[in-house]
């Protein structure tokens, strides 16, 4: 079943969306990472556009895409039944609550469940898409998660120009040159959640040059 799901997602992302993003929209990749053989791993990226998830997913290799889940906000991506179904099955997302008082499971516990299963996560620690080309401070969740799992590699990704193609609040996609820069998988050096968050933020930012 997992294999079937991986094939389905690979055809959508690794072939169709990859072709459109590369040749029509104009997203170019810089240095492919040395992918781990299997999960768990955490992909950490900056966030300006819905395209960010698409661009990352389109470059995940065949063997890993079935077990890679973007982590998304349930209040946005689970608004109604259809969106919930779409997010779960087509985006392969894990829906977490953003605010403490919202109903549902503790986000860290939910993500831990998937890591324990050996799955990969895509996390945008900025929390929301924000203004184009502006990096917001990273939220602490990623630090807490990696403090709990210090032996899991994280892969930093820097996305540039996506906010110009499909900015927040716009429905129309307009092709522009954009780049996706991959860092190599590495382990966190810091030990406390705050330091880990800062370290990862720095690693993502380091890819911007």
């Amino acid at each position: 079943m997992d294999k079937l799901r991986g094939t389905f997602l690979y055809v959508i992302y690794g072939m169709v969306i990859k072709f459109v993003l590369r040749w029509i929209v104009g997203i170019q990749a810089k240095n492919q990472p040395h992918w781990p053989e299997s999960g768990p791993f955490i992909i950490v990226a900056n966030h300006n556009s819905h395209l960010d998830t698409m661009a990352i997913m389109s470059m995940i290799p065949y063997g890993l895409i079935g077990i890679t889940h973007p982590v998304a906000a349930s209040d946005y991506f689970g608004k109604n039944k259809w969106q919930f179904y779409f997010s779960k099955n087509i985006i392969n997302a894990i829906l977490i609550k953003r605010k403490k008082d919202d109903p549902g499971q503790n986000p860290i516990e939910l993500m831990s469940k998937f890591i324990d299963k050996g799955h990969g996560l895509i996390i945008f620690p900025e929390g929301s898409r924000g203004e184009p080309q502006v990096l917001q401070p990273f939220k602490k969740g990623i630090g807490i998660l990696l403090e709990k799992y210090p032996n899991i590699p994280y892969i930093p990704v820097y996305l540039h120009g996506m906010g110009k193609i499909l900015p927040k609040g716009e429905k129309l996609l307009v092709p522009f040159q954009a780049t996706i820069t991959w860092g190599n998988p590495s382990l966190v050096k810091a030990t406390s959640a705050d330091e880990i968050t800062a370290e990862i933020e720095q690693q993502v930012l380091a890819l911007s040059v």
Partner: peptide, 27 residues
Amino acid sequence: SLSAFRELSSMSKNIRAADRNIIIWCY
């Protein structure tokens, strides 16, 4: 052609952010 237009319009500094809905007509 499309790639060339995309390269040129991406680097052009004379195109305003508000023009994104108009650029789509060019495509």
